[in-house]
Simulated assay, not measured.
Amino acid sequence: MQYAFKTDVGQARPHNEDNGGVFVRDNMVLAIVADGMGGHQAGDVASCMTKTILEEKWQQTEEITIPTVAEDWIIDKVHIVNDQLFQHSQENKECQGMGTTVVAAICTNQFITIAHIGDSRGYLLNNNGFVQITEDHSLVNELVRKGQITDEEAENHPRKNVLLRALGTEQQITVDVKTIDWDPGNYLLLCSDGLSNKLIDEEINDILLSEKSIDEKVNEFITIANERGGEDNITVAVVHYTSADEEARCMK
């Protein structure tokens, strides 16, 4: 597997409240994107704690070979993160009300297990095309789902940033988890809304399929989002399940 991660403050925000990374253990990859929220720099704290805790737990785990184990692992660890975030916000006045989105994926040679809370997204590119594999936990997405507004109206809705679920804001959370098979040649992309609000699916698909290196692709995502305003922090993680031919080309 090849992978790349980048986060950027964007063009308008004074600091970066996004965090995440891609971490490897025993031929497995854990990819994380977290988009923090809260007063002052509490969003920074929430997203950084999320990345740090998940990374620490990941480095302590043994090889995961079946989806049920992956799903149990990621649900358990996200709940641990939530407990620690909520406790930290209660004990530190400057962090009261802090929270974060999270989208995290365990990638093995057989499957992807992805978990998320909030509106940071996961996408999969395979032989059937490019598709979003997470469902935004947002007010506008709920309105779209109920048929009260259209997708087009959702794009410019005044309450577009209102989340129905976040990590760290409440003691009890519900984590959406699913496992998907994938094959050599497929791509997994995780991102904050600083990217998904700026590029349409077709553009992301075309960049992933380009001949550029995986690092160049991630850099292009960030560049385009910034060129189109960069009003938010921008974070993207890409994992490419490389085929034997692709591995050979990369070795040249």
Results as ranks from 00 to 15, higher is better:
residue 100 T to E: 13
residue 202 E to P: 08
residue 74 I to M: 05
residue 189 L to Y: 03
residue 198 K to E: 09
residue 192 S to W: 13
residue 59 Q to V: 11
residue 92 N to D: 06
residue 112 I to Y: 12
residue 56 E to Y: 10
residue 121 R to C: 12
residue 96 Q to G: 06
residue 185 G to L: 01
residue 68 T to L: 08
residue 218 V to W: 02
residue 92 N to P: 06
residue 100 T to D: 00
residue 55 E to K: 06
residue 93 K to Y: 15
residue 174 T to H: 12
residue 115 A to M: 09
residue 167 L to K: 04
residue 140 V to C: 14
residue 244 A to N: 12
residue 7 T to W: 13
residue 207 I to D: 10
residue 146 K to P: 13
residue 131 V to D: 02
residue 40 H to V: 05
residue 151 D to F: 03
residue 218 V to H: 02
residue 207 I to Q: 06
residue 101 T to R: 00
residue 171 Q to V: 11
residue 171 Q to D: 10
residue 55 E to F: 09
residue 85 L to Q: 05
residue 14 P to K: 04
residue 113 T to V: 12
residue 10 G to L: 12
residue 210 S to L: 03
residue 108 T to D: 05
residue 201 D to Q: 10
residue 57 K to H: 13
residue 202 E to L: 05
residue 24 V to F: 03
residue 101 T to F: 10
residue 59 Q to P: 13
residue 61 T to C: 13
residue 250 C to T: 00
residue 109 N to D: 04
residue 97 G to R: 08
residue 5 F to I: 01
residue 62 E to M: 15
residue 159 R to H: 11
residue 214 I to Y: 06
residue 16 N to L: 11
residue 88 H to L: 11
residue 171 Q to E: 14
residue 115 A to W: 07
residue 175 V to S: 07
residue 201 D to R: 15
residue 3 Y to F: 11
residue 120 S to A: 08
